[in-house]
Design a protein around this nucleic acid. Structure first.
Length: 513
RNA sequence: CGGGGUGUAGCGCAACCUGGAUAGCGCGUCUGCAUGGGGUGCAGAAGGUUGCAGGUUCAAAUCCUGUCACCCCGACCA
């Protein structure tokens, strides 16, 4: 027996975190780069995770009164033009469609037909505020038509220059909610409600703790009055903006004439919101839970909860073991977890035991069951949890009876583990010296600087000095946490850690993706 | 999009500086036999227009030009 590698993934997180991330994706077969620059192919195992995410989010959207609809991929250029900040935010990264026909040149190469130029260029949607707003303008006449609560599942394109699988791709899948309301209060309430939906989803389903808060002016969505985000901490202690919810005020309503007549007959502009999460969540999922042996998927989102690995030598053993596995599978499928049948597969491929086991370890299946002749004889299973190193034999009936609880224990453990990690790496800082040392690795000139930093909770005031310091340390203000989420008191007024100017509340500072 | 780097088999690399004949190696893959409860062993096999297009040369993976892609550093970002 050759000695096993210490970890299934090389390099480890500590050795080279970004490379580890790539290797986890590859080892779990989640996605790969496509021939199209910056665009990824999401493979079945990765897409299945997305489908589970979609399923739960979609239900939560519907439970809060939203309906799905679909709007075009292509948007007239003039639509983007209507909201000035929006132009500023997206113009630089738009894919543009200018022709509607190809012809062959002298060399037989296909080129856009010069006689088939579009009268008005179209852009591939980077987000759909404008096209959806233009339809809202038609749909809303009276206060009786409000609110309009729409969600769409779609792909969008933002021509990013530096891409990373799941975290920043030129094309990504997401959902975008768009709503229109009669009053500012209602729209604000909607914005906050959806932020809370995202928080719940992140924590309950992804087992990924997040901080809800408002973005500072500089980090706002182009065209929004307020932007709120959920921020998660990855295992390299960098922040990942995992979802956003925007209060758009009347900016888009005015730009697009979304108006209604009130019950007193007066014409008013609507108040709108938009909110979205994307396949970036999968990146967050990977970097929150996975270890040096690969992916770890929280049970609620796992495409398979349990994989059964039959172990046998002779044909006789095979018959016995397979029979046992099949009936065990049926028994487990009859159990319900999180409101659905437990998802079980038998991996009967003709591979060696160790290879097969590592295959599923790297793909993050929550529970592995090894079943061999000894277990068949003893009416047992040999069970391993992906979130724990050890495995143990358990009587079959006991395992089946406790399987839902075990899955829930894994889910809870992952959340607790992630929460502890975040809290251990989050601290209040009130002076520049500590701030600098918090965000500077000890070996800052090394090829791969050590993992360092985390979340700094600081009183602050925005200005050139702050901008310079943050630029130097590559730190950003993630958000201004909403009250009462964190163990630390963030809302007692204080003084900016840099300038000493008065500050009403603390912000979360971190390096970010 | 600016600065730097790299493109050689599925993956990781060697040969390039100093041009030379059949482009090597490891892993993986495939086949056979023995194995099989944490990455097994032995034997054999397949797999390449050296990213692409030009140029220099008797001769190009190697030198030159262009181009595309990827990586790193900036700027931008769900």
């Amino acid at each position: 027996m050759a000695k096993a590698a210490k970890t299934a993934i090389t390099p480890t997180r500590a050795d080279d975190y970004p490379e580890w991330f790539q290797q986890v994706i590859r080892a779990a077969d989640l996605a790969e780069l496509s021939p199209v620059r910056g665009c990824m192919v999401i493979k079945p195992w990765g897409y299945a995770i997305w489908e589970h995410m979609q399923k739960h989010l979609d239900r939560m959207f519907k439970e809060t009164g939203h309906q799905n609809a679909y709007f075009p991929l292509l948007i007239p250029l003039s639509f983007l033009q209507k909201e000035a900040d929006h132009v500023e935010g997206f113009a630089k990264e738009c894919a543009v469609v200018t022709h509607h026909r190809l012809v062959q040149d002298e060399k037989g190469q296909l080129i856009p037909d010069k006689t088939a130029v579009l009268e008005e260029p179209l852009i591939v949607r980077p987000t759909s505020e404008t096209i959806i707003g233009s339809m809202f303008a038609k749909w809303v006449q009276s206060y009786r038509d409000l609110p309009i609560l729409i969600n769409q599942w779609a792909n969008v394109v933002r021509w990013e220059l530096r891409t990373r699988l799941f975290l920043r791709t030129a094309e990504f899948l997401w959902q975008e909610g768009h709503t229109a309301h009669a009053t500012s209060d209602e729209a604000v309430a909607e914005t906050m409600q959806m932020l809370e939906v995202y928080r719940t989803f992140a924590e309950h389903y992804m087992a990924m703790p997040v901080i809800c808060g408002e973005k500072t002016e500089g980090e706002r969505f182009p065209g929004a009055v307020n932007t709120y985000s959920i921020e998660a901490m990855m295992q390299d202690r960098k922040a990942l903006q995992a979802g956003t919810s925007h209060f758009l005020g009347q900016n888009f309503a005015k730009a697009q004439e979304i108006k209604y007549q009130g019950d007193q007959g007066k014409e008013e502009y609507c108040w709108t919101t938009s909110w979205g999460v994307s396949t970036r969540l999968i990146g967050g999922l990977i970097m929150t839970h996975s270890d040096d042996d690969g992916l770890i998927i929280p049970p609620r989102l796992a495409p398979q909860h349990i994989v059964i690995l039959p172990i046998h030598r002779t044909d006789e053993e095979k018959t016995l073991v397979m029979e046992y596995c099949e009936s065990l599978k049926k028994e487990l499928q009859a159990v319900s977890y999180d409101g659905e049948p437990v998802r079980v597969m038998i991996d009967a491929r003709d591979l060696r035991g160790g290879d097969k086991m590592w295959y599923h370890v790297k793909r993050g299946v929550p529970i592995r069951l090894e079943v061999g002749p000894r277990d068949v004889a003893g009416g047992a299973v040999f069970a391993a949890r992906r979130d724990q190193p050890d495995k143990k034999g358990t009587p079959r009936a006991e395992f089946v009876a406790g399987v839902a609880a075990t899955l829930e224990a894994i889910q809870t453990n992952l959340l607790e583990r992630a929460k502890k990690f975040r809290d251990d790496n989050m601290r209040v800082i009130d002076n520049e010296k500590d701030f600098r040392s918090f965000f500077t690795p000890k070996n800052k000139d090394a090829e791969n600087p050590e993992i360092h930093g985390g979340y700094a909770l600081c009183h602050f005031s925005e200005g050139p000095e702050m901008e310079a310091l943050l630029g130097e340390l590559k730190v950003t203000i993630r958000n201004l946490p909403l009250k009462g989420q964190l163990p630390q008191d963030t809302h007692t007024p204080g003084k900016c850690f840099l300038t000493g100017k008065p500050s009403p509340q603390m912000a979360v500072f971190a390096k970010a993706y």
